[in-house]
Simulated scan of single mutants.
Amino acid sequence: MNCLFCEIAAGDVSSHRVFEDDTAVAFLDHRPLFPGHVLVVPRRHAETLTDLPPDELGPFFARVRDVTGAVERGMGAAGSFVAANNRISQSVPHFHVHVVPRNPKDGLRGFFWPRGRYDDEAQAADVAARLRAALAGAGD
């Protein structure tokens, strides 16, 4: 399998690493939103969040938490933006979490896409019911 992030995790492709252990590897994004923009990837290949084994979720996100604190402290940032894409807009098919330092008036405005509203309470109730049903069937 040719996966850029697996190659970075293995040390076969150079990167500016900021953290690594048996669970995760964190390195600077090569096209950062701001200096200090880090990608945190599971060391073992998982294409999406839903492909990450349940026993690896907690340890992986503990690393994301630690890297987030380091990005904020190390870059003197007032806060951070932490996000992940799942298939859509995922430029490398290996799950990764973006940790971006944020400051007031840095030019980013909330989410990067237009937001809307439900047509009415009935539509919102229908969507919530569909999601509850999907969660109830998740163990099937």
Rank of each mutant, 00 (worst) to 15 (best):
M1H: 13
A122L: 08
P101S: 00
V25G: 04
F61V: 06
D21F: 01
P53F: 06
P104A: 04
A70S: 13
V38Y: 06
R17Y: 10
P93E: 08
A138V: 03
G11S: 05
L49S: 06
D126F: 08
V92K: 06
D29I: 03
R63P: 15
H37M: 05
V127W: 12
V67P: 15
V64H: 02
I88A: 12
V38A: 05
F27K: 07
L57A: 10
S15F: 01
N86A: 06
A83G: 13
V38M: 03
A10I: 00
V97L: 01
F61D: 07
A124Q: 13
N103G: 04
W113P: 03
C3F: 04
F111Q: 10
V41T: 12
P53H: 08
P53N: 09
A138Q: 11
V67S: 09
F60E: 03
R117K: 10
R31E: 10
D29G: 07
A77G: 05
L57E: 13
C6F: 01
G36Q: 11
A136S: 14
V92I: 09
L33T: 12
M75Y: 11
R65T: 14
S91F: 03
P93K: 00
H98L: 01
G11K: 07
M1Y: 06
A128N: 11
F27E: 10
F95P: 09
E7F: 00
E7S: 02
G69W: 02
R63F: 05
D126I: 00
G74N: 06
D29K: 02
V13Y: 00
V97S: 01
G139N: 06
D126A: 15
D119L: 15
A78E: 14
S14C: 01
A46N: 03
H30K: 05
G11F: 03
G58R: 09
E7T: 04
L135G: 12
V97H: 03
T68I: 01
A46E: 01
E72C: 02
F60S: 05
A128P: 02
A129M: 09
R102N: 12
V13F: 04
A124M: 14
V82I: 13
L108G: 04
F111T: 15
V100H: 07
F34Q: 09
E121S: 15
A77D: 14
A138W: 08
T23D: 12
P101D: 03
G79K: 00
R87H: 08
E121F: 07
A136K: 08
V64T: 09
F112R: 11
S80T: 08
V25A: 07
A124R: 14
D55H: 15
D55E: 15
T48V: 06
L33P: 10
R132Q: 14
R130S: 14
H96N: 05
L57K: 09
D22H: 14
A83I: 05
G110W: 13
R73P: 03
V38P: 15
A77Q: 07
P59R: 02
F95I: 00
F19L: 04
F111R: 07
I8K: 00
A134H: 13
P42L: 00
Q90I: 00
E56I: 00
M75P: 11
S14K: 04
A125S: 13
Q123P: 15
A129I: 02
V64F: 02
S80N: 12
A125H: 11
S15N: 05
V13T: 10
A124K: 12
